[in-house]
Design a protein around this nucleic acid. Structure first.
Lengths: 243, 243
DNA sequence: TGTGTTATATCTTATATAAGTTATATGTTA
DNA sequence: TAACATATAACTTATATAAGATATAACACA
């Protein structure tokens, strides 16, 4: 019997991963920042460079850190170019990617309904902000989004702040509230357009739409956003890959 | 100027990855087989164990190989337990996974239409097999699949072979034709049920369905299957994750 | 049944070299 | 001298090798 047989045993590199994640949670290094070099981290954590390297490798594979040879290792940010398409899976059928334009419809403070509350680890009725917006490709509205975030984590969020911000919503969350989205789960259904979305998306009432429900997580796998997107998929598709 | 500046430079571990993949393509190791130990491969390829390790690590991350501590490294197979859910993304809303039952509708030899032909790197009109089937959860039909595979790669495929086989279709392809699916891309739309699928799925003509188009690839990123699934998503969702 | 042996992957450290980036020093030229 | 180009140094991550300790699994054998 030795320490490694213990059920709580974790390899060193895994412990280092946790320590790095804790520094991310604590805000010691913020999105876009360079973290210390492998050698610095090795001496800080009293392990070898190779062990730090393995920890960073895994965090980079999860898109939490980004390695740049010669420059350093950086905290992934939604402000970076490559991040734009990371969480947007709707693309033209022909494959050419295109940026949608966003039209903000409303930002309101609400009581969390049971559905999003439980997915966000909140009590039903907890205070949330509800953001509604319309995304258009080539000027044609395609996606109607309803987004819920806990008010406690997004204090002071309002309409004007979003309107004045140029860039993605996740980039906005990051720079104004220090909350970086690193992972999301989506559940997709085909539904009929209701009256609200039919008008917004310029489609008939019985038009089939993609209903994409998402829960997004920040460091430490903490859920911080629920959203429902209703998508008109004419000439566009939801694209995904598996292996 | 040295060899590393050459545009065709590949790190050693990447060359080893290619060599291993070539052995997979050649059928030297088949799905389910153990490949030689890291030390054996190192001496075979005249590199260090660490380099082989890095190559295997990446192939394991791509779900092409599976490492089992103490046992060895194995070629991933669709006959394995864990593989069942790998390419099936439809699940109950509550999250509990359930196996569908499959009802084979037809297996016919056809000329490839333009769409699937180009995605499968075939000439339009090339000979393909067309498989149609109905997947049911809890006895209720939910997915109508139409599957195209090149006849040249699946010689002798027929109706009875599939019917006599218990297990997933990919497991069948693997054991009867030596073709292992390792990756797939899907494009999803919301569409109205047409007359054929309305009858098969017991839904109205205007019922919204998920249309899931897939191209699946085998070793060396060779496309070998096209399929279109029409899914009735009542109480079920297409589940995906991103990071 | 249990116990040791062997073979495997896993983890950790160490060392060396290669290659990309940036800042600084050193020229060279107008 | 000032502006610009080039070389050098110092830093980074990336690649490759080696070696030893540990965890897991299978098997032989008492």
């Amino acid at each position: 019997m030795n320490i490694h047989s213990s059920p709580s045993f974790r390899p060193l590199y895994d412990q280092i991963k946790i320590l790095i994640t804790q520094s991310l949670i604590a805000g010691e290094w913020r999105p876009g920042d360079a973290i210390p070099s492998e050698i610095d981290l090795a001496s800080r954590f009293k392990v070898s460079q190779g062990t730090v390297r393995k920890a960073i490798d895994e965090l980079a594979a999860e898109n939490i850190l980004i390695r740049r040879q010669g420059k350093g290792t950086f905290v992934a940010s939604h402000s970076q170019e490559r991040a734009s398409t990371r969480f947007l899976r709707i693309a033209r059928d022909e494959g050419v990617f295109e940026y949608p334009t966003s039209q903000l419809l409303s930002v309101t403070r609400e009581r969390a309904p049971e559905g999003s509350a439980s997915l966000l680890d909140l009590r039903t009725g907890a205070s949330i902000f509800c953001i509604k917006r319309l995304l258009s490709f080539e000027g044609i509205p395609r996606i109607f989004d309803e987004i819920h975030v806990p008010a406690v984590s997004f204090k002071g969020l309002d309409d004007a702040m979003i309107r004045n911000y140029t860039g993605s919503l996740y980039s906005f969350f990051e720079s104004h509230f220090g909350i970086a989205m690193i992972r999301a789960e989506e559940h997709i259904k085909a539904v009929k357009a209701g009256p609200v979305e039919a008008e917004l998306l310029h489609v008939n009432l019985d038009q089939p739409l993609l209903r994409v429900d998402r829960v997004a997580f920040t460091y430490g796998d903490r859920p911080v956003e629920w959203r429902r997107g209703l998508c008109h998929t004419e000439r566009f598709s939801y694209v995904t890959e598996m292996s």
